[in-house]
Design a protein around this nucleic acid. Structure first.
Lengths: 185, 185
DNA sequence: AATATAATTAGATATATATCTAATTAATTA
DNA sequence: TAATTAATTAGATATATATCTAATTATATT
């Protein structure tokens, strides 16, 4: 099971008032379904349902005793989940399948005209930087470009090559010296 | 805010797939609403809604930047909640308002007849013990009772005083020596 | 063997909420 | 000042699920 569904099952299990209360009761000791139903003023099927959800998250386990099912809280599981929440790599892993370039592509799409050139340079800084990141990909790493050539390449995006050039320097995607420009490595 | 509602808000906040994913994205760095909407393929109002839920749980905070709202994950808050989950007193506190005697009372009610005496002694051990706990309250702490008096007192509950007496000794609510009985203190 | 009891499963219903569109607010740029 | 843009709020709808009753299963007692 992926970290994502595991965490989701865990949070879902405890995100319901009655289930959280069941966990609170079981934290004080094992308990039968009938007893939980009585303590929570719920029907037994409802308690059974909640215990199944908690069980799927690994938070409780049952043992048969006579015709009782005695449920107990899996404190070890609770601890291991809480500790994973404290680990800094856990949450980012949840977003592993998110395409972090989707926003950039959407911005590029919005500002691109039919001819492949930009209809305009975005006024919003955030979006202008998306354009700049794209512009940077038009240059080869390591290679040095005279200003004239930089302009020629940037003109494929938009006639305002000066703004693009300045932006690339500002957010340190490129460097310049002696009239030459190159990508920051 | 009580521990209970605080934990509930926390779990609810992260118990929804898209919100968990938002947390995963924000764990990698601050982000504007628009950008999140694009990354998650959701409308902006929907993202706004999710961020409000996360915000109410204290898990994200926003700062205005131009007309962007830049949201960031409150890692400190996440850590403090995870740590509380590890503390052994936290979960029991969630059930502080549960009347732990409710089950016992329900059992007593079920087995009591109109005359105040028990209709029968429960066959189920679990319930028999409820009766025994009640029976123990009929005796005064510290006082020593000869067997005859014990029987007289227990007879108010049920004629099978021998079973009651034996049960009280078995689960160590009472002790006996030299034909006298007394409550274990 | 027959009856009683605790739990679970199945099926129905009501409530909570995730999501959208439209309208509004707040901030920026022309 | 007018127009644009990001965010939020309001209102509507669809989906998920908490809860119940009834039926079924499994175990224990008579």
């Amino acid at each position: 099971m992926s970290t994502e569904t595991e965490l989701l099952d865990f949070f879902k299990a405890l995100a319901e008032p009655k289930r959280l209360k069941i966990a609170g009761i079981l934290a004080q000791g094992p308990c039968a379904v009938e007893e939980l139903a009585s303590l929570l003023e719920l029907s037994e099927p409802t308690v059974s349902h909640h215990l199944a959800v908690l069980g799927r998250a690994g938070l409780v386990s049952a043992r048969a005793e006579g015709h009782y099912s005695i449920y107990e809280l899996r404190k070890d599981r609770l601890e291991s989940l809480a500790e994973r929440l404290l680990a800094k790599e856990t949450l980012p892993a949840v977003a592993h399948d998110v395409d972090m370039q989707a926003y950039d592509r959407a911005v590029m799409r919005n500002f691109s005209g039919a001819d492949g050139k930009l209809k305009a340079l975005p006024a919003q800084r955030k979006k202008f930087e998306v354009i700049l990141r794209h512009a940077a990909t038009l240059f080869k790493p390591g290679k040095r470009y005279p200003e004239k050539e930089v302009n020629k390449i940037l003109a494929a995006l938009h006639e305002d090559t000066a703004s693009l050039r300045r932006g690339l320097i500002e957010i340190q995607l490129m460097q310049r010296a002696n009239g030459e420009y190159w990508l920051v490595s």
